[in-house]
Simulated scan of single mutants.
Amino acid sequence: MLHPHKGKLSVLIITLNEERNMKELLTELAFADEVIVVDSYSTDRTKEICMSFPYVKFLENKFENYTSQRNFAMDQAQNDWILFIDADERLTPELKKEVLETIVSEHPKSAYLLYRTFMFKNSKLRFSGWQTDKIFRLFHRGKARYKNERLVHEKPDVIGEIGKLKSKLIHYSYSDYQSYKAKMVAYGRLKAIEAKNRGIVPNFFHFVIKPLYKFVYQYLIRLGILDGGRGIVICYLNAYSVYVRYQFLKEMTAKN
């Protein structure tokens, strides 16, 4: 007897106040067998926009961290194959075709890494550490689960072989300075909790050396200098995220 969900695809999206992205993104996802949005109680028009698409299943779940939210979303899926997409990401026609061909291939891997093209506003950022950016986005639901110890920049545990897709995911991560900075601060807060759970006590090394190294590494070693002013902005904000991580950790340590 054939498995009714074998070779079928569930696209999962976790959101919070993403009204500017949802219409364009969801319009592109009609090719999937199932589309699920797990929202963290947005206060903008995210819910309204999602509900206007008949093939979208909209759910609300309190956000604790990215790992728990992704695992919750996976538990709602009906199909064997999971494709996670963030609201600021877009699939090219070539990538859609490759995804569908991959999941029905004779011997698929357990999970696949997708390379991403980082967009600074509406132009491609070629360096600054993003030129080899890749992330788990496509996997067999029964062979991957996100690790609880990572609250942000989460990575699934995979049972079996890992592959890579050739077509790139378009990542519109940087729309404006304040939004990207807020994102880096949010990531820093979750990273601080991870550090606290590992028993790290912040000191001069964490406040000065680690942020400085982050900037120098991305700007010089990873050639952010070739991205001009955009490279300075991205490398600075990524280094700033490291700094605020340990500021948050310092505050949590002081309270304890």
Rank of each mutant, 00 (worst) to 15 (best):
M1S: 15
L2M: 14
L2R: 12
H3S: 15
H5P: 08
K8D: 02
L9A: 08
L9Q: 05
L12F: 05
I13S: 07
I14C: 12
E19R: 12
N21C: 07
N21D: 05
K23Y: 04
E24P: 06
E24L: 14
L25E: 01
L26W: 12
E28D: 14
L29D: 00
L29K: 07
A30P: 02
V37H: 06
D39H: 09
S40H: 10
T43G: 12
D44A: 06
K47V: 08
P54R: 14
P54F: 09
K57Y: 11
L59D: 00
N61A: 10
K62R: 08
F63D: 12
E64R: 06
N65C: 14
T67A: 15
S68E: 09
S68F: 11
S68G: 08
Q69F: 01
N71S: 00
M74H: 04
D75C: 08
D75R: 11
D75L: 12
Q78V: 11
Q78Y: 10
D80A: 15
L83G: 03
D86T: 02
D86I: 10
A87R: 06
A87I: 12
R90S: 03
P93Y: 11
L95D: 07
K96A: 09
E98C: 14
V99T: 00
V99Y: 03
L100T: 01
T102K: 03
I103H: 04
I103T: 03
P108A: 11
K109A: 13
L113E: 11
L113F: 15
L114R: 12
Y115V: 09
R116E: 14
M119K: 06
F120C: 04
F120R: 09
F120A: 11
K121L: 12
S123T: 15
S123A: 05
K124Q: 10
R126S: 11
S128F: 13
G129S: 09
G129F: 03
W130N: 13
Q131W: 09
R137W: 04
L138P: 04
L138G: 06
F139I: 03
F139L: 01
H140T: 09
A144V: 05
R145T: 12
N148I: 10
R150P: 05
R150I: 15
K155V: 13
D157Y: 10
I162A: 06
G163M: 02
K166G: 13
H171K: 13
Y172L: 12
Y172E: 03
S173Q: 09
Y177H: 15
Y177I: 13
Y180K: 06
K181D: 07
K183P: 03
K183Q: 14
V185Y: 02
Y187V: 13
Y187P: 01
G188M: 07
R189P: 05
R189E: 14
R189I: 03
L190R: 05
L190F: 10
N197M: 14
R198A: 04
I200C: 06
F204S: 10
F205E: 01
F207D: 02
F207T: 05
F207C: 04
K210D: 05
K210F: 14
L212M: 14
V216W: 02
V216F: 05
Q218F: 13
Y219P: 02
R222N: 01
G224R: 15
L226W: 07
L226N: 00
G228N: 04
G228Q: 00
G228W: 09
G229P: 10
R230T: 12
G231T: 07
V233A: 11
I234P: 08
I234Q: 07
I234M: 11
I234T: 09
Y236L: 13
V242A: 08
R245Q: 15
Y246T: 06
F248G: 02
K250I: 04
N256K: 13
